[in-house]
Design a protein around this nucleic acid. Structure first.
Length: 575
DNA sequence: AGGCCTTTGAAGCTG
DNA sequence: CAGCTTCAAAGGCCT
């Protein structure tokens, strides 16, 4: 998996390279027969990373990023994606800086990334590390005209990996857009839920000719089909989101796919982009879960995949599909729930974590993500809460009649129902893995990030009040942790950073963690640092370092947070 | 092939 | 209203 390897390489580079034994790691993982080349590029990327770091440190404006971006553009494309990944981070940082300086979008355009401004500025839609399909969905939704593959993609469209995608996204981000802008832009102010897109059109415009055509099945990736490289560069007109430019996003996405900018033509993938996660109004109109274009909507899961176990429909569902027959039920589109803040965060960060550690299991990754989530500063979390809030808003607008209940029972009966059992499911699960002694130990330890709400509490009040009025301000702080403890005994939210080990690294993490009696009451401001910071820990810190200085707390916590993962890396490498 | 696992949060359900 | 359940994403693992 070249791409994966690349990501790993990227991560390793991000960690600081030699000092972290990156090369060793790299070599140990490499098997594509292009090690030298990679190493060579490694150096280059390393330099880029240095730039990133320096940019983090140096608040002053510099053109290095620009030049770098240009450099990136000129470099051989095969690895451009990976490099761009770092670039994205760099620009991300840059953008953040600007934002913090109050001139978020004042900065001049970047030559290398004409439209790039905030690749992953806490924007769930912009997965800097990698853009998951779902993430792309968001992007698609937020930026209908966005051609995910972007410039680099055109040259390297073969790589479907998240890492590949990640750097494409930023390219289309408008320089003047706030990370939340997309959502904000789509607020009801500009969007008339009840306004049926009069321009609805079943056909898809050929990207090149602009001529309506029938989407080819191959283009109709069930989820977030990528533009097949040939998509070409789409001049992203500034202000395309601006209502006066013609059409607000939703109407555009409202299944019509007829874009105000025909010249920008959309192919199937583009349509998908436009369609976004939440296909507007198509529910009532397209009970089959397909757009008029026949494109399965990301937010609408084919009933063939998901269907009522017993074929029953909820009342709400019935409202959408009046008198649904068995067949219709099967075809009934599955409108997914809007993502919550954490889900948004996960989407954005998953790729990073995956690239960072050897673990690939989502369960393990999610554990890390969960811990990281807790380690986020209130500001960071607030952004996601805000996004989630907007997301729900959007969803409700798109699917006025939709209810979460509609999706109830769609899944097979879940196993983890009875946690009150003497042997909680969670424990049962853990028993699968040889992680003995872990839980007891870690339970005696407190984590800096968890802080019993110190960290979490903060996002609750201030963040919510700050960025997300509708955010679970009251609940987040006091419920997230405590509630989890009470209602989820088998979980360890109480010790986010030291919680359950991820499959392969539990033992090591356990020992290392235990030596780190972090004070629970430790405020988010100064979580205890690891007494014995591991090189790889710093690697993580480097890779996952928060985009802004004020995330120092989270930054530090990351050291501890990822201690387990690095170890797993080491172990694997040693083997 | 499809469910499980794992995370947090939102929403629905239940008593 | 409190507490519990379900689902959202993801992908390796397991049956």
């Amino acid at each position: 998996f070249p791409a994966l390897s690349g990501l790993r390489r990227s991560c390793l580079n991000g960690g600081g390279g030699d000092e972290l034994g990156a090369n060793d790691e790299l070599i140990s993982f490499k098997d594509e027969g292009e090690q030298e080349e990679k190493i060579s590029e490694n150096v280059s990327a390393e330099r880029d990373l240095d730039d990133v770091k320096s940019s983090l440190v140096n608040e002053s404006e510099n053109n290095s990023s620009s030049s770098d971006s240009e450099q990136t553009e000129r470099r051989p494309q095969p690895r451009a994606d990976l490099e761009s990944y770092e670039k994205a981070r760099e620009y991300f940082t840059e953008a953040l800086r600007r934002q913090q300086d109050g001139g978020f979008f004042k900065s001049p355009h970047y030559p290398g990334y004409p439209f790039l401004m905030i690749p992953d500025l806490g924007n769930p839609y912009l997965s800097n590390g990698a853009l998951s399909p779902s993430a792309r969905t968001y992007l698609q939704m937020k930026w209908p005209l966005l051609d995910v593959p972007g410039t680099a993609a055109l040259k390297d469209s073969r790589s479907p990996t998240p890492g590949h995608l990640s750097n494409k996204v930023p390219v289309v981000q408008h320089a003047h857009m706030h990370p939340l802008t997309p959502l904000i832009t789509y607020s009801s102010e500009h969007f008339s839920p009840g306004t049926p897109p009069a321009h609805l059109s079943p056909e898809i415009l050929d990207p090149k000719t602009g001529i309506p055509r029938t989407p080819h099945p191959s283009e109709l990736s069930p989820y977030y089909p990528l533009s097949p490289g040939a998509m070409g560069q789409i001049p992203h007109p500034l202000g395309w989101l601006v209502p006066q430019q013609g059409q607000p996003m939703y109407p555009i996405t409202a299944g019509g796919f007829r874009h105000p900018y025909p010249a920008l033509a959309m192919n199937a993938s583009m349509s998908s982009l436009v369609s976004s996660r939440f296909s507007p109004h198509i529910v009532p109109h397209h009970p089959h879960g397909l757009h008029q274009t026949g494109i399965p909507h990301p937010a609408i899961v084919s009933p063939a995949i998901k269907q009522e176990p017993n074929g029953e429909l909820s009342p709400a569902a019935n409202t959408k599909s009046p008198v649904p027959t068995k067949k219709e039920e099967d075809k009934k589109p599955h409108i997914k729930k809007p993502l919550n803040a954490f889900m948004l965060y996960m989407k954005e960060m998953r790729a990073k974590v995956v690239a960072e550690c050897t673990l690939k299991e989502s369960a393990a990754i999610n554990q890390i993500l969960g811990r990281r989530w807790h380690s986020l500063s209130r500001e960071e979390q607030a952004k996601y809460y805000e996004l989630a809030r907007k997301e729900r808003q959007l969803h409700s607008q798109l699917y006025p009649g939709w209810s979460a209940r509609d999706n109830y029972g769609r899944r097979k009966k879940r196993k983890r129902d009875n946690k009150t059992d003497s042997t909680p499911e969670g424990e049962r699960a853990w028993n699968k893995k040889p992680c003995v002694q872990y839980l007891p130990q870690e339970k005696m330890i407190d984590s800096p990030a968890s802080s019993h709400g110190s960290m979490l509490d903060s996002p609750a009040t201030p963040s919510a009040a700050l960025a997300s009025p509708a955010a679970p301000a009251p609940t987040h702080s006091e419920q997230a942790q405590p509630l989890s403890l009470t209602t989820k005994p088998d979980r360890h939210h109480h010790f986010p950073l030291l919680s359950k080990p991820s499959s392969s690294s539990c033992t090591s993490s356990s020992s290392s963690s235990s030596s780190q009696p972090t004070s629970s009451s430790g405020s988010q401001s100064t979580p205890p640092l690891l007494s014995r910071p591991l090189p790889l820990a710093s690697l993580h810190a480097s890779l996952f370092s928060p985009p802004s200085p004020f995330h120092q707390a989270a930054f530090h916590s990351h050291h501890a947070l990822f201690q387990s993962q690095p170890l797993s890396l080491v172990t694997k490498s040693a083997d």
